[in-house]
Design a binder for these strands. Structure first.
Lengths: 216, 216
DNA sequence: GTGGTTTTTTACCATTTGGTCAAGGCACGA
DNA sequence: TCGTGCCTTGACCAAATGGTAAAAAACCAC
Protein backbone atom coordinates (compact mmCIF):
# COMPACT_ATOMS: atom_id res chain seq x y z
CA UNK A 1 0.00 0.00 0.00
CA UNK A 2 1.36 3.40 -0.82
CA UNK A 3 2.11 5.57 2.19
CA UNK A 4 0.08 8.56 1.06
CA UNK A 5 -3.18 6.69 1.17
CA UNK A 6 -5.38 6.75 4.23
CA UNK A 7 -6.39 3.63 6.14
CA UNK A 8 -9.29 3.13 3.74
CA UNK A 9 -7.13 3.75 0.72
CA UNK A 10 -8.89 7.03 0.15
CA UNK A 11 -8.45 10.07 2.33
CA UNK A 12 -11.54 12.18 2.88
CA UNK A 13 -9.33 15.17 3.59
CA UNK A 14 -7.71 16.72 0.55
CA UNK A 15 -4.13 15.95 1.44
CA UNK A 16 -4.30 14.41 4.89
CA UNK A 17 -1.24 15.99 6.43
CA UNK A 18 -2.20 14.47 9.77
CA UNK A 19 0.75 12.44 10.99
CA UNK A 20 0.39 8.85 9.95
CA UNK A 21 3.02 6.41 11.16
CA UNK A 22 5.95 6.91 8.82
CA UNK A 23 9.14 4.95 8.68
CA UNK A 24 12.50 6.68 8.64
CA UNK A 25 12.75 5.96 4.93
CA UNK A 26 9.37 7.50 4.28
CA UNK A 27 10.19 10.63 6.21
CA UNK A 28 13.53 10.99 4.49
CA UNK A 29 12.17 10.43 0.99
CA UNK A 30 9.11 12.61 1.43
CA UNK A 31 11.41 15.36 2.65
CA UNK A 32 13.73 14.86 -0.31
CA UNK A 33 10.85 15.06 -2.73
CA UNK A 34 9.40 18.17 -1.13
CA UNK A 35 12.79 19.84 -1.19
CA UNK A 36 13.31 19.07 -4.85
CA UNK A 37 9.74 20.11 -5.62
CA UNK A 38 10.32 23.42 -3.88
CA UNK A 39 13.25 24.05 -6.17
CA UNK A 40 11.26 23.22 -9.26
CA UNK A 41 7.88 24.75 -8.46
CA UNK A 42 9.36 27.98 -7.15
CA UNK A 43 11.42 28.36 -10.28
CA UNK A 44 8.87 27.43 -12.93
CA UNK A 45 5.42 27.53 -11.43
CA UNK A 46 3.05 24.63 -11.18
CA UNK A 47 2.21 24.13 -14.83
CA UNK A 48 5.78 24.65 -15.95
CA UNK A 49 7.21 22.01 -13.64
CA UNK A 50 7.44 18.33 -14.44
CA UNK A 51 7.52 15.22 -12.33
CA UNK A 52 10.73 14.21 -14.05
CA UNK A 53 12.47 17.36 -12.88
CA UNK A 54 11.29 16.71 -9.34
CA UNK A 55 12.32 13.07 -9.49
CA UNK A 56 15.74 14.05 -10.83
CA UNK A 57 16.19 16.64 -8.12
CA UNK A 58 15.18 14.14 -5.48
CA UNK A 59 17.52 11.54 -6.95
CA UNK A 60 14.88 8.91 -7.53
CA UNK A 61 12.68 7.57 -10.27
CA UNK A 62 9.36 9.12 -11.23
CA UNK A 63 7.27 6.11 -10.18
CA UNK A 64 8.99 6.21 -6.84
CA UNK A 65 7.98 9.84 -6.39
CA UNK A 66 4.43 8.81 -7.16
CA UNK A 67 4.73 6.08 -4.56
CA UNK A 68 5.13 8.78 -1.92
CA UNK A 69 2.71 11.36 -3.28
CA UNK A 70 -0.65 11.05 -4.96
CA UNK A 71 0.48 13.08 -7.93
CA UNK A 72 1.96 16.36 -9.03
CA UNK A 73 -0.86 18.38 -7.54
CA UNK A 74 -0.61 16.62 -4.17
CA UNK A 75 3.06 17.58 -3.91
CA UNK A 76 2.24 21.17 -4.70
CA UNK A 77 -0.61 21.31 -2.21
CA UNK A 78 1.57 19.74 0.46
CA UNK A 79 4.23 22.39 -0.10
CA UNK A 80 1.68 25.19 0.01
CA UNK A 81 0.14 23.92 3.23
CA UNK A 82 3.50 23.70 4.96
CA UNK A 83 4.42 27.11 3.62
CA UNK A 84 1.36 29.00 4.83
CA UNK A 85 2.15 28.09 8.41
CA UNK A 86 5.70 29.33 8.45
CA UNK A 87 4.87 32.28 6.26
CA UNK A 88 2.26 33.75 8.57
CA UNK A 89 4.23 33.15 11.72
CA UNK A 90 5.87 36.58 11.98
CA UNK A 91 2.52 38.29 11.59
CA UNK A 92 1.00 36.08 14.29
CA UNK A 93 3.62 37.19 16.78
CA UNK A 94 2.68 40.83 16.27
CA UNK A 95 1.01 41.60 19.61
CA UNK A 96 -0.15 44.62 21.51
CA UNK A 97 2.77 46.23 23.31
CA UNK A 98 4.06 49.40 24.87
CA UNK A 99 6.45 49.89 21.97
CA UNK A 100 4.37 49.49 18.81
CA UNK A 101 7.00 51.02 16.56
CA UNK A 102 9.56 48.49 17.73
CA UNK A 103 7.08 45.67 17.26
CA UNK A 104 6.35 46.72 13.70
CA UNK A 105 10.01 47.17 12.91
CA UNK A 106 10.66 43.73 14.32
CA UNK A 107 8.04 42.41 11.95
CA UNK A 108 9.65 44.20 9.03
CA UNK A 109 13.05 42.76 9.86
CA UNK A 110 11.63 39.29 10.39
CA UNK A 111 10.01 39.38 6.95
CA UNK A 112 13.17 40.69 5.34
CA UNK A 113 15.17 37.98 7.03
CA UNK A 114 12.82 35.35 5.65
CA UNK A 115 13.35 36.68 2.15
CA UNK A 116 17.07 36.12 2.41
CA UNK A 117 16.82 32.88 4.36
CA UNK A 118 13.98 31.21 2.46
CA UNK A 119 13.93 32.71 -1.01
CA UNK A 120 12.52 29.58 -2.60
CA UNK A 121 9.52 29.63 -0.30
CA UNK A 122 8.94 33.28 -1.09
CA UNK A 123 9.07 32.56 -4.79
CA UNK A 124 6.73 29.59 -4.46
CA UNK A 125 4.23 31.85 -2.76
CA UNK A 126 4.73 34.59 -5.34
CA UNK A 127 4.41 32.15 -8.20
CA UNK A 128 1.15 30.82 -6.86
CA UNK A 129 -0.36 34.26 -6.30
CA UNK A 130 0.95 35.55 -9.61
CA UNK A 131 -0.95 32.76 -11.35
CA UNK A 132 -4.16 33.77 -9.63
CA UNK A 133 -3.73 31.71 -6.45
CA UNK A 134 -5.86 28.87 -7.87
CA UNK A 135 -4.80 26.46 -5.13
CA UNK A 136 -4.45 28.98 -2.37
CA UNK A 137 -7.37 31.40 -2.24
CA UNK A 138 -9.14 29.11 0.26
CA UNK A 139 -6.12 29.43 2.53
CA UNK A 140 -5.97 33.16 1.99
CA UNK A 141 -9.65 33.53 2.80
CA UNK A 142 -9.74 31.30 5.84
CA UNK A 143 -6.29 31.82 7.37
CA UNK A 144 -4.67 35.00 6.18
CA UNK A 145 -7.72 37.21 5.87
CA UNK A 146 -8.91 36.96 9.50
CA UNK A 147 -5.35 37.19 10.77
CA UNK A 148 -4.74 40.32 8.73
CA UNK A 149 -8.05 41.85 9.83
CA UNK A 150 -7.11 41.32 13.46
CA UNK A 151 -3.64 42.79 13.11
CA UNK A 152 -4.91 45.74 11.09
CA UNK A 153 -7.35 46.53 13.86
CA UNK A 154 -4.46 46.44 16.31
CA UNK A 155 -2.34 48.72 14.14
CA UNK A 156 -5.30 51.02 13.70
CA UNK A 157 -5.64 51.35 17.47
CA UNK A 158 -1.96 52.23 17.76
CA UNK A 159 -2.46 54.96 15.19
CA UNK A 160 -5.55 56.36 16.89
CA UNK A 161 -3.63 56.44 20.16
CA UNK A 162 -0.93 58.45 18.41
CA UNK A 163 1.74 55.89 19.21
CA UNK A 164 2.69 55.53 15.54
CA UNK A 165 2.01 57.79 12.59
CA UNK A 166 -1.23 57.42 10.68
CA UNK A 167 -1.55 55.57 7.39
CA UNK A 168 -3.74 52.81 5.97
CA UNK A 169 -2.91 49.73 8.10
CA UNK A 170 -3.83 47.26 5.38
CA UNK A 171 -1.71 48.93 2.76
CA UNK A 172 1.05 49.37 5.28
CA UNK A 173 1.22 45.62 5.59
CA UNK A 174 1.00 45.24 1.81
CA UNK A 175 3.99 47.51 1.40
CA UNK A 176 5.97 45.64 4.04
CA UNK A 177 5.31 42.41 2.18
CA UNK A 178 6.11 43.99 -1.16
CA UNK A 179 9.41 45.54 -0.17
CA UNK A 180 10.74 42.60 1.81
CA UNK A 181 9.68 39.82 -0.55
CA UNK A 182 11.03 41.78 -3.49
CA UNK A 183 14.56 40.71 -2.55
CA UNK A 184 13.63 37.06 -2.91
CA UNK A 185 11.12 37.22 -5.74
CA UNK A 186 13.16 39.56 -7.92
CA UNK A 187 16.53 38.25 -6.85
CA UNK A 188 17.57 37.67 -10.46
CA UNK A 189 17.00 41.34 -11.19
CA UNK A 190 18.54 42.62 -7.98
CA UNK A 191 21.66 40.57 -8.62
CA UNK A 192 22.11 42.16 -12.03
CA UNK A 193 21.51 45.69 -10.79
CA UNK A 194 23.43 45.71 -7.52
CA UNK A 195 26.96 44.40 -7.06
CA UNK A 196 27.20 45.60 -3.48
CA UNK A 197 26.38 43.93 -0.19
CA UNK A 198 22.68 43.59 -1.00
CA UNK A 199 21.48 42.31 2.33
CA UNK A 200 23.17 44.96 4.44
CA UNK A 201 21.95 47.75 2.19
CA UNK A 202 18.47 46.29 2.09
CA UNK A 203 18.28 46.10 5.86
CA UNK A 204 19.37 49.69 6.26
CA UNK A 205 17.07 51.05 3.60
CA UNK A 206 14.00 49.09 4.65
CA UNK A 207 14.55 50.16 8.22
CA UNK A 208 14.75 53.78 7.19
CA UNK A 209 11.73 53.52 4.91
CA UNK A 210 9.30 52.19 7.49
CA UNK A 211 10.75 54.01 10.45
CA UNK A 212 10.27 57.36 8.75
CA UNK A 213 6.76 56.33 7.75
CA UNK A 214 5.70 55.22 11.21
CA UNK A 215 7.52 57.52 13.62
CA UNK A 216 4.83 59.82 14.97
CA UNK B 1 6.94 32.83 -47.33
CA UNK B 2 6.06 33.38 -43.72
CA UNK B 3 6.12 37.02 -42.63
CA UNK B 4 8.46 36.52 -39.71
CA UNK B 5 11.33 35.39 -41.86
CA UNK B 6 13.93 37.80 -43.12
CA UNK B 7 14.60 38.40 -46.80
CA UNK B 8 16.93 35.43 -46.85
CA UNK B 9 14.48 33.24 -45.03
CA UNK B 10 16.72 33.32 -42.00
CA UNK B 11 17.14 36.31 -39.77
CA UNK B 12 20.60 36.87 -38.35
CA UNK B 13 19.07 38.86 -35.51
CA UNK B 14 17.33 36.81 -32.88
CA UNK B 15 13.84 38.13 -33.47
CA UNK B 16 14.29 40.83 -36.07
CA UNK B 17 11.87 43.42 -34.76
CA UNK B 18 13.04 45.80 -37.46
CA UNK B 19 10.00 46.93 -39.39
CA UNK B 20 9.46 44.80 -42.43
CA UNK B 21 6.59 45.73 -44.73
CA UNK B 22 3.50 44.25 -43.14
CA UNK B 23 0.03 44.14 -44.56
CA UNK B 24 -3.00 45.23 -42.54
CA UNK B 25 -3.84 41.57 -41.97
CA UNK B 26 -0.36 40.84 -40.72
CA UNK B 27 -0.40 43.75 -38.33
CA UNK B 28 -3.83 42.85 -37.03
CA UNK B 29 -3.06 39.18 -36.55
CA UNK B 30 0.34 39.72 -34.99
CA UNK B 31 -1.29 42.12 -32.56
CA UNK B 32 -4.02 39.61 -31.77
CA UNK B 33 -1.48 36.89 -31.12
CA UNK B 34 0.65 39.10 -28.91
CA UNK B 35 -2.38 40.16 -26.92
CA UNK B 36 -3.50 36.59 -26.38
CA UNK B 37 0.06 35.57 -25.56
CA UNK B 38 0.28 38.34 -22.98
CA UNK B 39 -2.78 36.90 -21.27
CA UNK B 40 -1.37 33.41 -21.23
CA UNK B 41 2.30 34.03 -20.49
CA UNK B 42 1.56 36.53 -17.73
CA UNK B 43 -0.80 34.08 -16.07
CA UNK B 44 1.20 30.87 -16.37
CA UNK B 45 4.77 31.71 -17.16
CA UNK B 46 6.64 30.63 -20.24
CA UNK B 47 6.92 26.91 -19.59
CA UNK B 48 3.36 26.64 -18.31
CA UNK B 49 1.84 28.23 -21.38
CA UNK B 50 0.89 26.38 -24.54
CA UNK B 51 0.56 27.40 -28.15
CA UNK B 52 -2.96 26.02 -28.14
CA UNK B 53 -3.99 28.42 -25.39
CA UNK B 54 -2.49 31.31 -27.31
CA UNK B 55 -4.12 30.21 -30.56
CA UNK B 56 -7.48 29.87 -28.80
CA UNK B 57 -7.14 33.28 -27.23
CA UNK B 58 -6.22 34.79 -30.56
CA UNK B 59 -9.14 33.03 -32.25
CA UNK B 60 -7.06 31.22 -34.82
CA UNK B 61 -5.48 27.86 -35.45
CA UNK B 62 -2.12 26.85 -34.07
CA UNK B 63 -0.46 26.54 -37.47
CA UNK B 64 -1.65 30.02 -38.26
CA UNK B 65 -0.01 31.34 -35.12
CA UNK B 66 3.19 29.68 -36.25
CA UNK B 67 2.78 31.33 -39.62
CA UNK B 68 3.19 34.69 -37.92
CA UNK B 69 5.79 33.79 -35.33
CA UNK B 70 8.81 31.54 -35.45
CA UNK B 71 7.66 29.58 -32.42
CA UNK B 72 6.61 29.84 -28.82
CA UNK B 73 9.89 31.37 -27.78
CA UNK B 74 9.78 34.01 -30.50
CA UNK B 75 6.39 35.21 -29.28
CA UNK B 76 7.70 35.45 -25.75
CA UNK B 77 10.81 37.32 -26.80
CA UNK B 78 8.75 39.69 -28.90
CA UNK B 79 6.53 40.47 -25.93
CA UNK B 80 9.51 41.01 -23.65
CA UNK B 81 11.20 43.33 -26.12
CA UNK B 82 8.10 45.46 -26.49
CA UNK B 83 7.62 45.46 -22.75
CA UNK B 84 11.08 46.64 -21.76
CA UNK B 85 10.61 49.81 -23.72
CA UNK B 86 7.35 50.88 -22.15
CA UNK B 87 8.41 49.62 -18.76
CA UNK B 88 11.51 51.77 -18.50
CA UNK B 89 9.86 54.88 -19.89
CA UNK B 90 8.88 56.48 -16.56
CA UNK B 91 12.42 56.05 -15.26
CA UNK B 92 13.84 57.63 -18.41
CA UNK B 93 11.80 60.76 -17.89
CA UNK B 94 13.30 61.27 -14.43
CA UNK B 95 15.48 64.32 -15.04
CA UNK B 96 17.36 66.83 -13.02
CA UNK B 97 15.03 69.52 -11.76
CA UNK B 98 14.51 72.21 -9.16
CA UNK B 99 11.89 70.08 -7.43
CA UNK B 100 13.46 66.63 -7.01
CA UNK B 101 10.88 65.48 -4.50
CA UNK B 102 8.08 66.21 -6.95
CA UNK B 103 9.96 64.47 -9.72
CA UNK B 104 10.40 61.34 -7.62
CA UNK B 105 6.81 61.38 -6.48
CA UNK B 106 5.74 61.73 -10.10
CA UNK B 107 7.79 58.66 -10.84
CA UNK B 108 6.15 56.77 -7.99
CA UNK B 109 2.68 57.69 -9.19
CA UNK B 110 3.53 56.84 -12.78
CA UNK B 111 4.70 53.38 -11.75
CA UNK B 112 1.64 52.85 -9.59
CA UNK B 113 -0.58 53.92 -12.44
CA UNK B 114 1.09 51.40 -14.71
CA UNK B 115 0.37 48.64 -12.23
CA UNK B 116 -3.33 49.35 -12.38
CA UNK B 117 -3.39 50.13 -16.09
CA UNK B 118 -1.16 47.33 -17.37
CA UNK B 119 -1.29 44.54 -14.80
CA UNK B 120 -0.66 41.85 -17.39
CA UNK B 121 2.57 43.48 -18.47
CA UNK B 122 3.67 43.78 -14.87
CA UNK B 123 2.96 40.11 -14.28
CA UNK B 124 4.76 39.09 -17.45
CA UNK B 125 7.82 40.94 -16.22
CA UNK B 126 7.48 39.49 -12.73
CA UNK B 127 7.02 35.99 -14.09
CA UNK B 128 10.14 36.27 -16.19
CA UNK B 129 12.28 37.60 -13.35
CA UNK B 130 10.81 35.13 -10.88
CA UNK B 131 11.98 32.32 -13.13
CA UNK B 132 15.50 33.67 -13.15
CA UNK B 133 15.12 36.07 -16.09
CA UNK B 134 16.53 33.48 -18.52
CA UNK B 135 15.42 35.46 -21.56
CA UNK B 136 15.85 38.89 -20.10
CA UNK B 137 19.13 39.26 -18.26
CA UNK B 138 20.79 40.57 -21.44
CA UNK B 139 18.19 43.33 -21.54
CA UNK B 140 18.60 44.00 -17.86
CA UNK B 141 22.36 44.22 -18.24
CA UNK B 142 22.44 46.35 -21.36
CA UNK B 143 19.37 48.56 -20.97
CA UNK B 144 18.19 48.72 -17.40
CA UNK B 145 21.50 48.58 -15.60
CA UNK B 146 23.08 51.67 -17.20
CA UNK B 147 19.81 53.57 -16.98
CA UNK B 148 19.51 52.75 -13.31
CA UNK B 149 23.14 53.67 -12.65
CA UNK B 150 22.58 57.05 -14.26
CA UNK B 151 19.40 57.80 -12.33
CA UNK B 152 20.90 56.62 -9.05
CA UNK B 153 23.77 59.02 -9.56
CA UNK B 154 21.24 61.80 -10.11
CA UNK B 155 19.28 60.86 -6.99
CA UNK B 156 22.53 60.65 -5.05
CA UNK B 157 23.39 64.20 -6.06
CA UNK B 158 19.99 65.40 -4.88
CA UNK B 159 20.63 63.76 -1.55
CA UNK B 160 24.09 65.24 -1.18
CA UNK B 161 22.65 68.66 -1.98
CA UNK B 162 20.15 68.12 0.82
CA UNK B 163 17.18 68.54 -1.49
CA UNK B 164 15.74 65.18 -0.48
CA UNK B 165 16.43 63.00 2.53
CA UNK B 166 19.29 60.55 2.45
CA UNK B 167 18.87 56.84 1.78
CA UNK B 168 20.36 54.26 -0.59
CA UNK B 169 19.27 55.42 -4.08
CA UNK B 170 19.41 51.95 -5.58
CA UNK B 171 17.29 50.40 -2.89
CA UNK B 172 14.97 53.38 -2.96
CA UNK B 173 14.20 52.52 -6.56
CA UNK B 174 13.88 48.84 -5.67
CA UNK B 175 11.31 49.69 -3.04
CA UNK B 176 9.37 51.90 -5.43
CA UNK B 177 9.21 49.04 -7.90
CA UNK B 178 8.30 46.56 -5.20
CA UNK B 179 5.46 48.56 -3.68
CA UNK B 180 3.91 49.72 -6.92
CA UNK B 181 4.16 46.46 -8.84
CA UNK B 182 2.81 44.57 -5.87
CA UNK B 183 -0.70 45.73 -6.74
CA UNK B 184 -0.48 44.08 -10.15
CA UNK B 185 1.64 41.05 -9.36
CA UNK B 186 -0.21 40.10 -6.17
CA UNK B 187 -3.59 41.29 -7.36
CA UNK B 188 -5.15 37.92 -6.54
CA UNK B 189 -4.04 38.28 -2.94
CA UNK B 190 -4.93 41.95 -2.63
CA UNK B 191 -8.42 41.25 -3.94
CA UNK B 192 -8.99 38.64 -1.25
CA UNK B 193 -7.64 40.81 1.55
CA UNK B 194 -9.11 44.19 0.71
CA UNK B 195 -12.73 44.85 -0.23
CA UNK B 196 -12.30 48.61 -0.27
CA UNK B 197 -11.38 50.99 -3.06
CA UNK B 198 -7.94 49.50 -3.56
CA UNK B 199 -6.57 51.99 -6.01
CA UNK B 200 -7.51 55.10 -4.04
CA UNK B 201 -6.11 53.65 -0.84
CA UNK B 202 -2.96 52.49 -2.60
CA UNK B 203 -2.34 55.92 -4.08
CA UNK B 204 -2.73 57.61 -0.73
CA UNK B 205 -0.57 55.13 1.15
CA UNK B 206 2.20 54.99 -1.41
CA UNK B 207 2.31 58.76 -1.56
CA UNK B 208 2.62 58.96 2.21
CA UNK B 209 5.23 56.22 2.34
CA UNK B 210 7.68 57.76 -0.07
CA UNK B 211 6.96 61.38 0.80
CA UNK B 212 7.82 60.74 4.44
CA UNK B 213 10.94 58.87 3.39
CA UNK B 214 12.21 61.57 1.06
CA UNK B 215 11.14 64.84 2.62
CA UNK B 216 14.35 66.36 4.02
C1' DG C 1 17.73 -17.68 7.48
C1' DT C 2 12.55 -17.03 6.38
C1' DG C 3 8.33 -14.89 5.21
C1' DG C 4 5.86 -10.96 4.78
C1' DT C 5 6.03 -6.13 4.09
C1' DT C 6 7.88 -1.98 2.25
C1' DT C 7 10.47 0.19 -1.32
C1' DT C 8 12.21 0.59 -6.04
C1' DT C 9 12.46 -0.17 -10.77
C1' DT C 10 11.42 -1.56 -15.62
C1' DA C 11 8.21 -1.35 -19.04
C1' DC C 12 4.40 0.70 -20.59
C1' DC C 13 0.19 3.82 -21.78
C1' DA C 14 -2.74 7.83 -23.10
C1' DT C 15 -2.62 12.54 -23.60
C1' DT C 16 -0.55 16.83 -24.44
C1' DT C 17 2.52 19.72 -26.78
C1' DG C 18 5.61 22.20 -30.09
C1' DG C 19 6.02 22.05 -34.62
C1' DT C 20 5.58 20.59 -39.89
C1' DC C 21 3.39 19.93 -44.40
C1' DA C 22 0.74 20.11 -48.21
C1' DA C 23 -3.37 21.49 -49.88
C1' DG C 24 -7.27 24.62 -49.98
C1' DG C 25 -9.28 29.49 -49.55
C1' DC C 26 -9.06 34.18 -50.33
C1' DA C 27 -7.74 38.99 -51.74
C1' DC C 28 -6.52 41.92 -54.95
C1' DG C 29 -4.02 44.04 -58.84
C1' DA C 30 -3.78 43.38 -63.98
C1' DT D 1 -12.44 37.87 -64.13
C1' DC D 2 -8.55 35.69 -63.54
C1' DG D 3 -4.28 34.27 -61.72
C1' DT D 4 -0.63 35.08 -58.46
C1' DG D 5 0.69 35.08 -54.08
C1' DC D 6 -0.70 35.80 -49.29
C1' DC D 7 -3.36 33.54 -45.68
C1' DT D 8 -5.51 29.52 -43.28
C1' DT D 9 -6.33 24.97 -42.00
C1' DG D 10 -6.81 19.74 -41.25
C1' DA D 11 -3.91 15.99 -40.78
C1' DC D 12 -0.01 14.53 -39.02
C1' DC D 13 4.52 13.67 -36.23
C1' DA D 14 7.99 13.03 -32.57
C1' DA D 15 8.97 14.14 -28.09
C1' DA D 16 7.51 15.11 -23.52
C1' DT D 17 4.52 14.36 -19.73
C1' DG D 18 1.44 12.53 -15.92
C1' DG D 19 0.47 8.36 -14.48
C1' DT D 20 -0.04 2.86 -14.01
C1' DA D 21 1.08 -2.19 -13.43
C1' DA D 22 3.59 -5.65 -11.91
C1' DA D 23 7.63 -7.69 -10.82
C1' DA D 24 12.13 -7.34 -8.56
C1' DA D 25 14.79 -5.84 -4.68
C1' DA D 26 15.56 -4.39 -0.10
C1' DC D 27 14.19 -4.50 4.56
C1' DC D 28 12.94 -6.26 8.91
C1' DA D 29 10.84 -8.78 12.73
C1' DC D 30 11.05 -13.43 14.03
Amino acid sequence: MSPHDGPLGESTDGEADRPRPRSRIQKRNRARILDAALDVFSAQGFRGSTLDQIADGAGMSKPNVLYYFDGKEAIHVSLLNALMDRWLDPLRTLQDTDAPLDALMDYVHAKLDMSFTMPRESRLFASEVLQGAPRMSPHLESDLRPLLDEKCALIGRWMEAGRIARTDPRHLVFSIWAVTQHYADFEAQVRVLDDGPVRKAAEAHVDTLFRRLLTP
